[in-house]
């Protein structure tokens, strides 16, 4: 079941924030989510995320495009409707190169972007949970799942955040399935 109760810590400097993540994780406290207004370098390492495999999808889709372009043009020019164009060869590989290249790029870019949208759960009309409005502006947030936590445990997390330089710590409770 999705949690609805959270503790949110907000920082205003990315370097303090990165240090804080290291210290908090060392204490064995699980970080539910990390939100920043821009990509912070070293954040995924600090959080212990593994590398994204999105690059691989680009390669796979690109290779699909290459294959499709070459096989389709070969099929058209040699089998389906061989046409004599000014006495040129029926299978002119060099003139296939530009279209093959373009289709490789096209498939790779579209395939990767669509995979990116699916994996990131982004689509027009999606209503996300906003833990704090300022995380797209000037605040770096850490979100802790507080569904199972006692009051004492919550306070421990809060005081830890404050001692690690958080400028603000608060509770955030969503109604069931509520977003935005």
């Amino acid at each position: 079941m999705e949690s609805n109760k959270f503790v949110v810590g907000l920082w205003d400097h990315e370097e303090v924030y990165l240090h804080a993540i290291g210290h908090i994780r060392k204490k064995g406290i699980a970080i539910y989510e990390s939100l920043t207004p821009f990509p912070v370098h070293g954040l995924e390492n600090a959080l212990g995320y593994r590398d994204t495999r999105l690059h691989t999808t680009a390669f796979i889709f690109g290779a699909t495009g290459t294959t499709l372009a070459l096989t389709f043009m070969t099929w058209v020019m040699t089998y389906n409707y061989p046409l004599n164009v000014g006495g040129k060869p029926y299978w002119p590989l060099p003139s296939f190169i530009p279209i093959t290249f373009e289709l490789t790029v096209l498939f790779s870019a579209w395939g990767m972007t669509l995979t990116y949208l699916v994996r990131n759960k982004l689509w027009p009309g999606r209503v996300p949970r906003i833990f704090d409005k300022r995380t797209t502006d000037d605040r770096f947030a850490l979100v802790f799942d507080a569904e199972q936590l006692t009051e004492a445990q919550k306070n421990e997390i809060k005081s830890l955040c404050t001692s690690e330089g958080a400028v603000e710590v608060k509770d955030k409770v969503f109604a069931e399935n509520e977003g935005l």
């Binding site: 990390s34 939100l35 954040l43 995924e44 959080l47 990131n120 209503v127 949970r129 906003i130 797209t136």
Partner: peptide, 13 residues
Amino acid sequence: FGWQGTAKQWQRF
């Protein structure tokens, strides 16, 4: 598209 700015989103971005 319902952007949040989570660390994983930025990594993929």
